[in-house]
Design a protein around this nucleic acid. Structure first.
Lengths: 249, 249
DNA sequence: CGCTTATTTGACTACGGTCAACGCGAGTGG
DNA sequence: CCACTCGCGTTGACCGTAGTCAAATAAGCG
């Protein structure tokens, strides 16, 4: 078994970290996931991992960096529909032999694990892993709904505030936060394409949040000073991100 | 076995009609679905079927009318995240014992079938039905993504145009269209809460579409005259609504 | 250090929201 | 049978949030 680079004992990576949030994993489960995490490749920012029209197989998992699902309009406008952060998995075999209706691409340099269909079957043969993946898919869908709420019924600042709160919770689940701060390795243009705005307006809205003392940004580091007020202004209720565990699978 | 009201032989209802779109159903499958459709109740417009915070079980299916998934903001603003049209099913047991993060309510008078957990298990025991439900869930998710695109990157008229095109395809799949027209039993306020606008602006945008000769409305009946131009203006590509069938399940 | 890519700012525009009034048809009750 | 109400649709005047265009800085990066 491959040793996780840069560490002695295999400290659990974001993958097992995330799935553990949905239920206890066995040693062997964690080992299988660590195996996946060991076989990652570094992908530069702005790379498409899976394109619209493709018929992908197996799975891909992100262990470092931000990726996203997006579509383009004919005029070049981009809309991001989902972020893939460390620990997130796309299970293409769950999509039963279909063509992609959108593209998956990296927003920053990413560490990506591609899981072949066979290995992917082996993973899903583990009840705890399969269950975790199913839960994760449900959460992803809940996030899509919340983003619709965000786009349809929140103002510019509120949208950004809500997004930042969501990311805090999601990144905390994989141990990538420090207090109320985390690395946000994406540009204001990316934020604009996420929140349905222009980068100019994102810039102004960020300024507003900063001036209000709600957030702070130093380099890539985003700090949610005054998290309480931020959550309140965005009406952020994290219930959609947490799934309660079934008593028995 | 109960006879479908109002007809001699059990003409396939929207439920089996829809699932057939994802793969051939056996006689017994169709019969089981017809059984579900026979046990429906009429629900008035504006009724919540399942509320945020509930922990529903079994399934519900719509066989007539429009329902929707929605959330409210504290200020009363509503955002609709999905339409449930005849043939659509919510499988709560697939959501593994979780609380609803949104509400499901009727937008018009609806005929609704509630399927108890046991009956729901029986249905899912039928491979063709289970497969169809899984496909349907994937399509629903694709629709969520397309709605995000709609909200984030399309103008008011484009959003409405896109929505109307989507509904044409979805309703055609259950045989509820006549040429390029169908019944749209919802108000302009509902359309506003769907497209993230105000009812005033929906009204004006509808007027614009009418004046351009792209749509026509007589009572509840919506006709997409000039469907080609409508699709083009909305950049509507129905690929996200169609799933290709697997060779073998 | 020089190039490229991001961020920031300003002036102006426009899309869509707000507020308010009016019309209209379907029910409902006198 | 008519008056009344209620919900929905329609229209107008005005406002404000966010988009557009353009240019100046700042920040990475080879």
């Amino acid at each position: 078994m491959k040793v996780v680079p840069g560490g002695g004992a295999a400290v659990s990576g974001p993958l097992s970290r995330k799935l553990q949030g949905f239920g206890r994993l066995e040693e062997a489960d964690a080992a299988a996931l660590a195996m996946v995490e060991a076989g990652t490749r570094l992908v530069p920012s702005g790379t498409d991992l899976v394109r619209e029209g493709d018929r992908p197989e197996g799975m891909i998992a992100i262990t470092e960096g931000f990726a996203c699902r997006y579509k383009l309009r004919e005029n070049g406008a981009r809309q991001i529909m989902a972020y893939l952060v460390p620990g997130d998995v796309c299970d293409f075999d769950a999509s039963v032999l279909n063509r992609m209706d959108h593209t998956i691409g990296t927003l920053s340099t990413c560490r990506v694990a591609r899981v072949a269909p066979e290995a992917s079957r082996d993973l899903r043969a583990r009840p705890a892993v399969a269950g975790g993946l199913r839960m994760a898919a449900l959460v992803d869908e809940a996030i899509l709904r919340e983003w619709i709420m965000n786009l349809g019924r929140r103002s510019a600042v509120e949208r950004l505030a809500h997004l930042f709160c969501e990311l805090l919770v999601r990144l905390r689940a994989v141990g990538l936060t420090l207090g109320n701060s985390y690395d946000l390795p994406i540009t204001q243009l990316d934020l604009a394409d996420t929140t349905g705005m222009t980068s100019v307006h994102v810039n102004r809205s960020l300024g507003e949040l900063k001036r209000a003392g709600l957030i702070e940004r130093k380099g890539r580091r985003l700090t949610l000073t005054e998290l309480e007020r931020l959550m309140e202004m965005a009406e952020f209720r994290p219930n959609y991100l947490h799934r309660e565990m079934p008593e028995a699978a």
